[in-house]
Design a protein around this nucleic acid. Structure first.
Lengths: 368, 368
DNA sequence: TAATCGCTTACCAACGATTGCGGGAAACTA
DNA sequence: TAGTTTCCCGCAATCGTTGGTAAGCGATTA
């Protein structure tokens, strides 16, 4: 039995009538003649092998032949079939990225869509793509994807201490790279941003503007990321010989109300701080609420800084610590590609510095 | 030359020493013995074909044989190789979704990450996945992906009038489904939310609370989406015999400053409106800024509504029109799967109703 | 007893690419 | 001119599936 392709291409004898009917059928069926290496080879008068070599830039091929094949590829509008290549080379050039942990608001990073975007962009420059999936089923979603040969590796974000995903991926020797640190005893590639440094930047900025009584709002103790930021606050004050008071520190969850109350507790203490640093932007927003509710003004009476530089921060003119998301995505992509084996090895653990974006909420200086 | 597999599985004769060294090499190379249908077939004592039939639930296979194969699959921990299947069936079970049009702030929908999440979730329930990519190169990015057989179809969002992507995809007969309407003369599958209806909900809600002088801020004229919302405002006022005044309507871009000025122009007109509906949340935020800057209070002196129900709306207690993102994603996924041909055909054009989320910014009623 | 008929399952050729190996022609050496 | 080396390129196997076709089987029928 001859395929439509064979009939149309003349490989098989067929009278004009047959050809016409095949063409018609092909059209109604929206059948697209798939151009393969075979066609290119025939057109260029070389073997399939040679076409493959040209596509893969194998230096063995003579320049004239190379050009011949290139022309054929151009003339026929040929495009390599990724699936076939993948089957043969046993890779997918796909990186899995689990779309966020929607349930846990505290861990939800509002900048992850930017992260994903940058990730995708970077991946594309290496001929890779990002496959997004949901991890409602936990680690099983990851295992299924590699078992089915759907992806070559993973990028993780929202990493936590004792992260079961990391444990399992290490166990199964599945390539991955993470945005965020986890257990120190685990050796895996990650990119993290120095949280202590971020708070340090904020505190030093406030100091530079003349503030000496500085409070802080962070998450309840026990959350690694929060504890680190709190430590940054304490360390910076200590090394600069500024006072530390229990009453200037408060804890809050990621809600406005909590932050509102935390602000109240801090700002009603005597003497009251002239500035407050927050472990994230939502908290800062809550502080702003409180400050304005008592007739004071942010940036005049109370200086304020947030963390993460979310869109809200820009909206309300909030000074905030920004994580270099594009750079992080960049590095994470380098790491995962290294793991997969298409890049030269570099350092597997990367710590980046955040930067401070200064806005009106902390700009005015306090003449001490 | 025998493969490691053949040596280890006993297909090829090999002494124990050879086997051991192969095993060792396999371990150091992180070589994973790939279990294929071949192994399953051998283990179950049937042919590869039968295994395939069992996997694809072909009813031809006798229940006992079926069970036999199922057991073998379980025992060996076999997982079908997606790539091989894809090659054979000429599909990828991957849907492309271009991550947002980052440059154009006006068109940027802050809820698209939720959309993507829902999309991914829905896709997974059909055995599909979402491949995210960037469309910096425009339509070429789409063409490349189908040419390379990377995806079966696309989901579009941020659709505009005369959208070049839609034009081209229709031309090439590439399956896709869109979130958003475009030119009426184009027949393509889409899901859209009734923008007029959204504004109508907001206006009627304000009316129900006793407001009769209602202003509106929208984008500069000529933007389809803005014009539709403006029309919703005018129509609702008209059909309720409420006054319409030029001075109560203003245009602004997506910035706080613009909205601030627009609010100023509206609220300094005499008589001044007691309520303002905005074409999106950022504008509402700007209005709030202005209102508070003149010592008035949102929700008391001026009622306010936004559009899109972004996180900011919840943060500041803003009444806002919400698009049913999960439902939209759901429908879009149904549409694209229909296009690809794995689902029964349904209506190809779907219009959904938005809902109003009432918060403090408009809750208090005005006793007229 | 032989022909026929379902019902199951097996054979085998694809799908579109990659790659180890080897052969032939051109270039070089003697 | 003959032998050797070098350089290109083609042959054919292979990746793990799918599915059309055909073969084997026991049971039924003539």
């Amino acid at each position: 039995m001859a395929t439509a392709y064979q009939i149309l291409s003349g490989e098989t004898e067929a009278d004009d009538e047959t050809k016409a009917s095949v063409l018609e059928a092909a059209d109604t069926l929206k059948y697209q003649l798939n151009i393969t290496m075979r066609d290119v080879a025939a057109y260029a008068g070389v073997s399939i092998t040679t076409v493959s070599y040209v596509i893969n830039d194998n230096p063995l091929i003579k320049p004239t032949t190379r050009q011949l094949v290139r022309n054929a590829i151009r003339d026929l509008g040929y495009h390599p079939n990724t699936t076939a290549r993948n089957l043969k080379t046993n890779e997918t050039r796909l990186i899995g990225y689990a779309w966020h942990v929607a349930e846990d608001a505290i861990r939800r990073n509002p900048l992850l869509d930017l992260f994903l975007y940058e990730l995708a962009q970077r991946a594309e420059s290496f001929g890779y793509h990002i496959l997004t999936f949901t991890q409602v089923g936990g680690i099983k979603a990851y295992e299924d994807l590699v078992n089915a040969n759907r992806v070559d590796g993973f990028v993780l974000s929202d990493v936590v201490y004792d992260d079961p995903r990391i444990r399992r991926l290490l166990e199964l020797k599945i390539p991955f790279a993470a945005y965020g640190k986890s257990n120190a005893e685990w050796d895996f590639p990650y990119v993290d941003v120095d949280g202590k440094r971020g708070i340090q930047l904020a505190v030093e900025h406030l100091m530079a503007n003349g503030h000496e009584r500085i409070g802080m709002i962070s998450w309840p103790e026990g959350m690694r990321i929060g504890d680190i930021r709190t430590q940054g606050y304490i360390d910076t004050l200590t090394s600069n010989h500024l006072p530390i008071r229990e009453s200037w520190m408060a804890h809050a969850s990621n809600t406005l109300d909590d932050a509102f109350q935390a602000a109240q507790s801090i700002l009603t203490s005597k003497p009251r701080p002239t500035a407050i640093v927050c472990a994230n932007d939502v908290m800062a927003f809550g502080v702003k609420r409180y400050v304005e509710s008592v007739g004071l003004e942010i940036g005049i009476d109370v200086a304020l800084t947030g963390y993460d530089d979310t869109p809200v921060a820009e909206l309300i003119g909030l000074t905030s610590v920004r994580q270099p998301i594009p750079l992080i995505a960049n590095k994470v992509m380098e790491l995962i590609l290294t793991e997969i084996g298409h890049q030269a090895a570099t350092d597997r653990q990367i710590i980046l510095d955040p930067m401070l974006v200064v806005r009106a909420s902390s700009r005015s200086s306090r003449k001490a």
